[in-house]
Design a protein around this nucleic acid. Structure first.
Length: 722
DNA sequence: TGCGGTGGGTTTTTT
DNA sequence: ACCCACCGCA
C-alpha cells in the first residue's frame, strides 16, 4: 500500500511531490533522486488526489528512462497506473501524429528516417541542385537543417533569416528540396516528429484542445536538454491547465550542439512568473569527496543556477589521479586497478570523451581477459545488414520510400547497376512518381529498357511480399529476408563476416518476435517505429557482469561504484574544438561535472604524457578541469607506485602479469591446445600446431589453409574454435 | 558492375 | 591511424 506521507523522502523531495498545481521547476542536482520524486509525484497525483491516469503525461528523453519510469510506477500503483502516458518526446509525438497526421497533409503510412537516411536525401538534393559537397558538406547541411527544425523554422521562415547571405540561402534551398523529398517519400526525420506535432497542434485548435484537456498534469524530465521545438510542444500541451512540472539540472546540459537550449530551464521562472522552484541538493549517490570535486569544477561556470551538492555519507576515498606515459600506459593502469579490486566487473565504468579512445583500453582489457562491453560506436540498428532488412520492410510498407528502394534494389546483387538506378531516380524526380512505380513500369522508359526484366521482377517480388504479411511476425520478417534472397546470398558467401551478419539478422528476427509479444496491437508500422526510435544505451543491461566503456555523453543518468575518466587532457577533454569559445568550454565543463558525479565510491582520473591523436603524437597538458579540483581531494599516483619514469610499456605490461594471477580468480580465457581447428577473421581456417599458455593468454602457432603458419596471441587474434 | 588505390577529414549524438 | 568517398581500371 502506498504511504501518502512519503516517509522515505526528504523534506525537499516531499515538497516537490506535494506541489501539484501550477508550474513547478525542480532543480535536481546529480544523484538527488529526481526519478524517485517523479515517480512518487505521479503516484501521489493518482492515489492521493484522485487524478485519472489518462490525465497524466510524463515525458523523458530516452526509452530507458521512460521504461524505468513505467516499471517503477507499475510497482507502486499496479493496475491503477494503467493509461499514464509515460514516454519519450518522440514516441509521445508519434502517438499524436498517428491519429491526425493527415490533417497536415502527410501520408498516414509514413516511416521514420534516421540520420543516415537523411544524409542520403541531402546528397540527392546537392546533386539535383548542382552544389558541390566540398562547399556544402552533407553532414554540415544536415545539422544546419536539423537546427532549423529544432527552432521550428520551416524553409519560408528560414529564408527570412538568410538575409541575402549566399551560403545560408543555398542551404535554405537544399532544406526546401529536402523537405519536399521527405514528403514525397512518405518519411519524417527525427526532428520532423516534434516539429510536425507542434504544427499539427498549432493549426488544429480541435486537436490542441483535445490534448490540452486530456493532459491535466504534464511532467518533463531532463528539461535542460529540451530544444525550442520541445519547449513549444510542452508549452502547448500544458497550456490549459498550466500544471507543468519540469525536472532538470542546468549543470548537466551537455547537448547544446544538438540544439538543446539551456534558456528553457534558466528562463522557466520568467516564462511562468507564478512558478515555484524547488532545489534538490542532497545527493544519495556519491561520497563527499567526489561531490566536492564536482562542485569545485562546476562553480567555474558563469551561467548557472547556484547549487551545492552535499551528502550525509562520509568523505570517502580520495580521487586518484594517474599520469601514464602513453595512452597504453594509461589503459594498463585502468586494467590493473580493475584486476586488483575485489569488486565485480559491472561495478566499473570507463568514460572518455571520444569513441576512438576506447580501442587502446579494449586491447588492454582483452589482454587481461576481462569481460567488457562498449556502448556507442556502431549501433545494432546501424549495421548494414540490419539497415538493409529494415529497408525491405519499409519498402513493403511504403512504396514511395525511394531511399529504402535505392538501398536494397541491388542488395544482394541483381544486376541492377548504378546507372540504371540513376536513370530511375531521374525519372522519378522529373515525373513526380516514386522510383518503385518507375521501375514497375520500366517498359515505358527507353533508358530502362536494358534492365527492364530485372526491374519488373524486383517490383513483383516486393509486391508479392506485401501479400504475405501474416500471423507470426518474426516468420514474416524471416520470409521477407529469404524470398528477397538476402539470407540465401549471405549463406552462400560463407565468410566470417557473412556469418556475423546472419547472426545479426536472426537477432533482428527474434526482436520482431519480442515486439509482437509485447505490443498491444502489433503491426509492421509499429515494428518499424520501434526499431527507429531505439538508442544504444537503451539496451545497456547493468546486470551483465562486464566492465562498461562509453563516452561521457552516454553516461549521463547512469551511476557506478567505480568510475574512470580517461584522457583528462587539454585537447582531448576539453576537446580541441571547444577551447575557442567560452560557451563551448562551459559545456565541456558540464560534461566533466556529469562524469565526476557518475561515481559512487571511487573516481580515477587518468591522462597520458604522450598520446597519438589523429595520426600524430601529442604532448597534452593535464585538463584544466582537473586543475580546478582542490589538490587536497586528490591522491596523485603519477610518479609513485607503478610507473617509474624509465618503465617502458613492455615492462609495465610484464609487471601487470606478475601482479594479476594472485589478484582474483577470473574466468579463464578460451583455452587452446595443439590440434584444435580454429577460424580467424582474416586468415580463415587453420590448425593449431603449438599452444603455449602465457599468463591469461596463449601464444599460438597456427597453420592456416590460406597463408601458411603464423604466430598469434589468442587474446588479439579473435579466434573461433571449430 | 565491381574492385583497389588515393586523398581528405577527423567530438560529443538521448531520438 | 583510420575511415570514408571518389576515381580509374578490369
Amino acid at each position: 500500500m502506498l504511504d501518502l506521507t512519503f516517509p522515505n523522502l526528504n523534506d525537499k523531495q516531499r515538497e516537490a511531490v506535494f506541489t501539484t498545481d501550477g508550474p513547478l521547476l525542480i532543480l535536481a542536482g546529480a544523484g538527488s533522486g529526481k526519478t524517485t520524486v517523479l515517480v512518487n509525484k505521479v503516484a501521489y497525483l493518482i492515489e492521493g488526489k484522485g487524478v485519472k491516469p489518462y490525465n497524466v503525461l510524463a515525458i523523458t528523453f530516452t526509452n530507458k528512462a521512460a521504461s524505468e519510469l513505467k516499471t517503477r510506477l507499475n510497482a507502486m500503483l499496479g493496475q491503477s497506473g494503467e493509461g499514464i502516458w509515460a514516454s519519450t518526446f518522440h514516441s509521445a509525438c508519434m502517438k499524436i501524429l498517428f491519429r491526425d497526421i493527415k490533417k497536415i497533409n502527410y501520408p498516414e503510412n509514413f516511416c521514420i528516417y534516421d540520420t543516415a537516411d537523411s544524409l542520403t536525401v541531402i546528397k540527392e538534393c546537392l546533386k539535383e541542385l548542382n552544389l558541390s559537397d566540398k562547399i556544402f558538406p552533407p553532414k554540415q547541411v544536415r545539422s544546419a537543417i536539423s537546427r532549423a527544425k529544432d527552432e521550428l523554422l520551416f524553409p519560408d521562415e528560414y529564408e527570412n533569416i538568410c538575409d541575402g547571405d549566399y551560403r545560408l540561402s543555398q542551404i535554405c534551398k537544399i532544406y526546401r528540396l529536402y523537405n519536399d523529398k521527405l514528403k514525397t517519400y512518405g518519411a519524417l526525420d527525427f526532428d520532423d516528429i516534434i516539429m510536425l506535432t507542434v504544427l499539427l497542434l498549432e493549426q488544429n485548435p480541435d486537436v490542441l484542445s483535445f490534448y490540452q484537456s486530456k493532459f491535466k498534469f504534464v511532467l518533463v524530465d531532463e528539461y535542460q536538454d529540451t530544444n525550442h521545438a520541445q519547449y513549444r510542444l510542452v508549452s502547448l500541451l500544458a497550456g490549459k491547465h498550466r500544471n507543468l512540472c519540469v525536472v532538470g539540472d542546468d549543470d548537466q546540459s551537455i547537448y547544446k550542439f544538438r540544439g538543446a537550449d539551456i534558456e528553457n530551464i534558466l528562463g522557466f521562472e520568467k516564462q511562468f512568473p507564478e512558478a515555484k522552484t524547488i532545489k534538490l541538493e542532497e545527493n544519495y549517490r556519491s561520497s563527499q569527496n567526489i561531490l566536492d570535486a564536482a562542485n569545485n569544477v562546476i562553480k567555474n561556470n558563469s551561467e548557472r543556477k547556484s547549487k551545492r551538492l552535499w551528502t550525509s555519507k562520509g568523505e570517502g576515498e580520495k580521487i586518484t589521479l594517474f599520469k601514464g606515459q602513453t595512452e597504453y600506459d594509461e589503459a594498463r593502469f585502468i586494467v590493473e586497478k580493475i584486476e586488483l579490486s575485489a569488486k565485480s566487473y559491472n561495478d566499473f565504468a570507463v568514460l572518455y570523451r571520444m569513441n576512438s579512445q576506447s580501442r587502446v583500453i579494449e586491447d588492454a582489457l582483452t589482454r587481461a581477459a576481462i569481460p567488457y562491453r562498449v556502448l556507442g560506436g556502431l549501433r545494432f540498428y546501424d549495421r548494414k545488414e540490419i539497415k538493409d532488412a529494415i529497408a525491405y520492410l519499409r519498402l513493403i510498407f511504403n512504396k514511395n520510400d525511394n531511399v529504402s528502394l535505392k538501398r536494397i534494389i541491388n542488395e544482394p546483387k541483381r544486376g541492377i547497376g548504378k546507372t540504371t538506378v540513376q536513370y530511375a531516380e531521374d525519372l522519378s524526380a522529373q515525373l513526380g512518381i516514386s522510383m518503385f512505380d518507375v521501375c514497375k513500369k520500366a517498359r515505358l522508359y527507353p533508358t530502362l529498357e536494358r534492365s527492364r526484366a530485372r526491374l519488373e521482377q524486383f517490383c513483383a517480388m516486393i509486391e508479392g511480399l506485401g501479400g504475405i504479411e501474416q500471423q507470426p511476425f518474426d516468420a514474416f520478417v524471416k520470409e521477407v529476408l529469404i524470398q528477397t534472397d538476402y539470407i540465401p546470398a549471405l549463406e552462400a558467401e560463407n565468410s566470417i563476416e557473412s556469418i556475423t551478419r546472419l547472426e545479426n539478422l536472426y537477432e533482428l528476427i527474434s526482436s520482431a518476435k519480442e515486439y509482437e509479444q509485447s505490443a498491444d496491437e502489433p503491426s509492421l508500422s509499429g515494428f518499424l517505429e520501434s526499431v527507429s526510435l531505439v538508442a544504444d544505451v537503451d539496451n545497456y543491461d547493468e546486470a551483465q557482469n562486464a566492465v562498461v566503456l562509453m563516452t561521457l555523453h552516454s553516461a549521463k543518468g547512469l551511476e557506478f561504484p567505480t568510475v574512470f575518466i580517461a584522457g583528462a587532457e587539454e585537447g582531448v577533454f576539453p576537446s580541441l574544438l571547444s577551447t575557442a569559445s567560452n560557451e563551448e568550454l562551459e559545456e565541456e565543463r558540464r560534461l566533466c561535472y556529469v562524469g565526476i558525479t557518475r561515481a559512487k565510491e571511487q573516481l580515477y582520473i587518468t591522462h597520458a604524457g604522450t598520446r597519438t591523436l589523429f595520426g600524430s603524437t601529442k604532448h597534452n597538458r593535464l585538463s584544466r578541469f582537473i586543475e580546478e579540483i582542490p589538490s587536497s581531494l586528490i591522491e596523485n599516483l603519477t610518479s609513485s607506485l607503478i610507473a617509474p619514469k624509465q618503465a617502458t610499456v613492455a615492462t609495465a605490461y610484464a609487471k601487470t602479469n606478475i601482479l594479476s594471477p594472485a589478484a582474483k580468480p577470473k574466468k579463464p580465457a578460451m583455452s587452446f591446445s595443439a590440434g584444435d581447428t580454429v577460424l580467424h577473421k582474416k586468415f580463415g581456417n587453420g590448425v593449431i600446431i603449438n599452444a603455449i599458455n602465457v599468463g591469461n593468454d596463449y601464444h599460438l602457432e597456427i597453420a592456416f589453409e590460406s597463408c601458411g603458419t603464423k604466430h598469434l596471441m589468442a587474446a588479439y587474434a579473435n579466434l573461433t574454435k571449430l
